[in-house]
Nucleic acid binder design. Structure first.
Length: 462
RNA sequence: GGCCCCAUCGUCUAGCCUGGUCUAGGACACCACGCUUUCAAUGUGGGAACAUGGGUUCAAAUCCCAUUGGGGCCA
């Protein structure tokens, strides 16, 4: 068994495309087959090396490894030309010189009459002299496949039998000229030559499949099995696009998502193991993935679920590993691991780290005085609490400045208040300047005696 | 417009093929409570769905048809 992922390098790798890559990869792995990467860069204008790099970097980051390739279609034009010539020679394809203006007018006309828009076959039987004359004059042309009137049926591995009438398709364009084959043509040739046994792709290709089958028949190629997977949708059920936010894989990396989370999330968009297990590593997926557990209906990209999974995987990491992974998001600190262990369970994305922990990195912090107030506390209550806090903390000598001591002493003192919060809330805000944060004992232990006292003093002056 | 695909909680889905075990299960999100100085994490509990209408059948989420809705392809 052999599958392929065949993206066009005309933009950054889309998160939806990655899911297609993932399913192809998983299907190959779960069947001990091969998975290849093919770059469909026949569109010279829109294909860019930078996007090709993006595709490769994205797949590598996610751990989706290909067995062979990448193969570039742009380097295979001789092969396509050979097959195009053959079709032309066998009169299975022909040159068409109709202008796009002419075609558009006909199309409008057909649609107005409620017919399927298709080519009317005007150039299908042009005399040889006319063709040669037109070609030598450099008249603009395309190459069309001569489509016989047949019923085309294929068995989709996910949807079952799908049938279409070829008379609705008409003689479609397979190449602009001998050197520039179009999408369907290059795909069919490559899938044959690369021995692809299973084509797994988005359901937007269902309507393309009959065309490719027609080409396979014209070229006497073998037919791969097809599996059309459901599309990933935006929350409004339209196709997921830029206007819905991030779509490229590497953008997700920048936002601080872990590859483990992305893989797990994407796998469950349209697939499930049929059990209640929902946490899967790539390796586990490789074992358990199966096409007959793939859904037929489109799935909405639910970022809240991705966030949950990402938070989960962040919590699974050892603090050391977390430190390694968040280098781009947080500065160096003598007690970086201490900080991270405080925030590991509080973040869903690595990029939240900088903002949440900024007070560890600053000399002075700023915040509104109001924030120091615990519930109904009066100004004088607050002032005396802060004074008391300073006295208590000053009483802890440098050599005893550690989490255990700070916690024991403060907790004991806090019992004298009506509510612990009266002492501990202002303490925490004085340390962090934030409404929400890790606890004050842990924070001041990392901050150290000097900074802690400095911040309490600063709070008193507000 | 024509053709094709699809339809279970707000979302991802189990169940559908092989009707009865479904007073429809799980997860995310949401709400409440517990823990707690705040926020998380964590524990417990809760609300929440078979698109509609016909059929087939003793029995339909499950099979068939239609409608509606959504999506895709054709330029």
């Amino acid at each position: 068994m052999k599958t392929r992922f065949a993206p066009s390098p005309t933009g950054n790798l889309h998160i939806g495309s990655v899911r297609t890559a993932l399913f192809n990869y998983l299907f190959a792995k779960s069947n001990k087959g091969k998975f290849i990467l093919r770059i469909e860069d026949t569109d010279r204008e829109r294909s860019k090396p930078i996007y090709e790099k993006d595709i490769i970097d994205s797949l590598k980051w996610l751990g989706i490894e290909w067995d062979k390739g990448p193969f570039n279609q742009s380097e295979r034009t001789d092969i396509y030309e050979k097959h195009l010539k053959k079709l032309l020679d066998e009169k299975k394809a022909y040159y068409c010189f109709c202008s796009s203006l002419e075609l558009e007018a006909k199309r409008q006309d057909q649609m107005a009459r409620g017919e399927a828009p298709k080519y009317d076959g005007k150039c299908s039987n042009l005399p040889r002299e006319d063709i040669e004359k037109n070609l030598s004059e450099g008249k603009s042309c395309v190459i069309r496949l001569r489509v016989p009137k047949v019923k085309i049926a294929f068995n989709d591995l996910i949807r079952g039998k799908i049938e279409m009438d070829s008379s609705l398709i008409g003689d479609f364009v397979v190449a602009k000229d001998l050197k520039t084959p179009l999408f369907h043509f290059a795909v069919v040739i490559d899938d044959e030559l690369m021995d692809i046994t299973h084509v797994i792709r988005g359901e937007d290709h269902i309507s393309n499949t009959p065309k490719q089958i027609l080409l396979q028949e014209a070229l006497s190629f073998k037919k791969p099995s097809y599996a059309h997977i459901p599309l990933i949708l935006a929350p409004d059920r339209s196709k997921l696009s830029k206007r819905h936010g991030a779509t490229s894989v590497l953008e997700y990396r920048t936002m601080g998502y872990l590859p483990e989370a992305i893989i797990n999330f994407l796998a469950f968009l349209g697939w499930n193991p049929g059990t209640e297990k929902e946490i899967f590593s790539l390796k586990e997926l490789e074992k358990d993935f199966s096409l007959d557990k793939v859904q037929k209906a489109g799935a909405i990209f639910n970022q809240q679920r991705l966030d949950f999974l990402n938070g989960f995987y962040i919590r699974q990491l050892s603090v050391k590993e977390l430190a390694k992974r968040c280098k781009e998001y947080i500065g160096d600190h003598p007690d970086l691991e201490g900080i991270l262990s405080l925030y590991q369970s509080r973040i869903k994305r690595l990029d939240e780290l900088a903002q949440e922990t900024d007070f560890f990195y600053k000399d002075d912090i700023s915040y509104q005085k109001e924030l120091l107030r615990w519930k109904e506390m009066t100004d004088s209550d607050l002032a005396s609490t802060l004074e008391k806090l300073e006295t208590i903390l000053t009483g802890i000598p440098e050599k005893n400045w550690n989490l255990k001591n700070i916690q024991n002493i403060l907790l004991l003192e806090a019992e004298r208040f009506n509510n612990r919060g009266e002492l501990l809330w202002p303490f925490r805000v004085a340390m962090t300047g934030k409404k929400h944060s890790a606890g004050p004992f842990e924070v001041s232990a990392i901050l150290g005696r000097e900074k802690t006292l400095k911040r309490v003093k600063a709070a008193r002056l507000l």
